[in-house]
């Protein structure tokens, strides 16, 4: 691990104010509007209240926005010649990936920290286990979307494609039951989309499987969703890395 390199990478991302707005400020604002400002926010939900439920959802949305962007930009940067520049140094691929992972984790922690602080200040309630476990699950699960961003970056090789991948997260977030509680056929379809399992897993310490519409979902649904999508992203990204190598 190389401290200087990692610190400079972090500084680079943090001073990209536009990205940081979409990663941290916007989900924070969403929490205040959809969670803290609503009367239903203080209603009970599982091991806490509804504000807590919305807080976790928005933190998760911010975290995946961060990791998707960082994963995608890592791929684009490397293919636009920065990889060649680093290839002229003793830096190993493994160290590079590890440093990017640290950067992604730290940046993903920004919206989580901000929104959890907002939650604390505006009446989100839950047991200590809910606060702690949900934060960890949000951060760890967001790594899956770093691979998603990476795959898109590798496939399309442009900064615009990475922006599109982040934009697509908004649709996934709707289908992932993040912005509004879905029901009926739409909910059935939604259960198979990438963000659904991740957010359901992050909210599990709070809900223990209970849904906003009064239903009950077993834990394995969420775990299976995350596992399948993680596998798909990893397989696609690996295939794309191989393709890139053959062209060299």
């Amino acid at each position: 691990m190389n401290g200087t390199f990692t610190a400079l990478e972090l500084r680079r991302v943090l001073r990209d104010y536009v990205s940081m707005f979409f990663i941290a400020v916007l989900p924070g604002f969403f929490y205040l509007i959809f969670g803290a400002a609503q009367t239903y926010g203080s209603e009970d939900a599982g091991n806490g209240n509804v504000a807590m439920y919305i807080m976790i959802s928005m933190a998760a949305y911010g975290a995946v926005t961060a990791t998707t962007g960082i994963g995608g930009m890592a791929a684009v940067e490397r293919m636009q010649g920065w990889g060649r520049q680093l290839g002229l140094t003793p830096l190993r691929d493994g160290s590079y990936v590890a440093m990017k992972a640290v950067v992604a984790l730290v940046i993903a922690a920004v919206p989580v920290g901000l929104i959890y602080l907002l939650g604390l200040a505006t009446g989100a309630a839950g047991t200590a286990a809910v606060w702690g476990l949900s934060a960890v699950l949000v951060l760890v699960g967001a790594a899956v979307f770093a691979v998603y961003g990476l795959a898109v970056g590798l496939a399309f090789r442009t900064e615009a494609s990475v922006s599109a991948a982040s934009g697509l997260l908004v649709i996934m977030a709707f289908l992932g039951n993040i912005f509004i509680p879905l029901s009926g056929t739409l909910l059935t379809i939604a259960k198979f989309t990438p963000l659904y399992g991740y957010v359901a897993l992050a909210r599990f310490p709070l809900t223990e499987g209970g849904t906003p519409t009064g239903g009950q979902e077993p834990l394995w649904h969420a775990v299976a969703n995350v596992a399948v999508w993680a596998t798909i992203f990893v397989v696609v990204a690996t295939a794309l890395v191989r393709r890139g190598r053959q062209r060299q």
Binding site: G3, L8, R11
Partner: peptide, 12 residues
């Protein structure tokens, strides 16, 4: 300067 420092950090 940051670019130089970043690449420099990769060398022993």
């Amino acid at each position: 300067r940051e670019t130089v420092r970043m690449v420099a950090s990769c060398f022993d």
